[in-house]
Computed example of a mutant assay.
Amino acid sequence: MAMLEVKNLGISFGGLRAVDGLDMTIEKGELYGLIGPNGAGKTTAFNMLTGVYKPTDGVIKLDGEDITGKSTIEINKAGIARTFQNIRLFSELSVLDNVKVGLHNHYKYSTIAGILRLPAYRKAEKEMDAKAMELLKVFNLQDEWDYKASNLPYGKQRKLEIARALATEPKLLLLDEPAAGMNPNETGELMDTIQFVCKNFDMTVLLIEHDMKLVSGICQKLTVLNFGQVLAQGKTSDVLNDPKVIKAYLGE
């Protein structure tokens, strides 16, 4: 069974058809790319997958469950987490506490236990601290656990956002331009990290990205959008060598 199955997905804003007839199937464990020129409909597609926008038509299934039109919270609980093109961290919280935000759905204690700091609260907090540190070690952020998120370098903020998304224990991780603003060394580290996450967390990843070195280096398959419609789809090497893609996306 596919991890993500999208059939005839579309959305209209007034008279504008932003995405039209999107079909996409992503198998469990795949690292899949969604690319295209600016304004092609990539972020709009992400917003439909995560419940920010409700599709005008079409069906979205996650691991066999129909999540079409559900709320952002319901979709997150079903198993989709995402990062954003513009980093959205809790800038005044510590690095550790940013990751713990993503863990709270999995550790429960009563309001009274929290106010009075009863044993149930202390036990949950200790477990969350340990789990958050495990995730920070994956991204080599463990030494900055007590830094304010805003004090991290840009590349490390990107990694922290991915760590927080992973803390929700998703089935499918959506990465929106994860390499944006990174220098080549940071991008190389990010490529290694994403591949590590896929392999060691049994994670399925869908990413939007303009960095073709990253896309060609880690994505197994691609879908190319242009003017809201699928221009090409298939194995990464085949798609990137498609004359239609080169003309529309790479400008050559």
Rank of each mutant, 00 (worst) to 15 (best):
V245K: 01
M203S: 09
L222W: 04
L225K: 04
I75C: 06
D57W: 15
K61I: 05
M24Y: 07
Q157G: 04
F46E: 08
P184S: 09
V6K: 00
V59C: 09
D238W: 05
L225S: 08
L231G: 07
Y154N: 05
K28S: 14
I87G: 03
I87V: 13
A40C: 04
I60G: 03
N183Y: 04
Y32M: 06
Q195C: 13
V19L: 06
E125G: 04
L166M: 13
G10L: 09
L116V: 12
K123D: 15
L49D: 02
D211A: 08
E252H: 11
N86Y: 11
Q85S: 06
L49T: 01
Y109D: 13
Y32C: 08
V95K: 08
K137E: 15
G14Y: 11
N38R: 06
V239M: 01
L214R: 05
L135T: 07
K54I: 13
V52S: 01
E177L: 08
I67N: 05
Q157A: 03
N105R: 14
Y249T: 03
S91M: 14
A179W: 08
L231T: 10
K244T: 03
I194G: 03
K7F: 06
L225P: 00
M48F: 02
E144P: 06
E125H: 01
V59P: 01
A124E: 15
R122C: 11
I194P: 05
L166I: 12
G102Y: 11
V230N: 14
Q229Y: 04
M3S: 07
S71W: 02
L96Q: 12
P243L: 00
E127M: 11
P243S: 07
P243I: 03
K247M: 12
L190G: 04
E189D: 15
L190Q: 07
L118E: 09
L206T: 11
T72W: 05
G29N: 07
L175C: 02
L93I: 04
L173R: 02
L34S: 05
Y121H: 13
M48P: 05
G10H: 10
K131D: 12
R117F: 07
L4D: 12
T204W: 11
L206H: 07
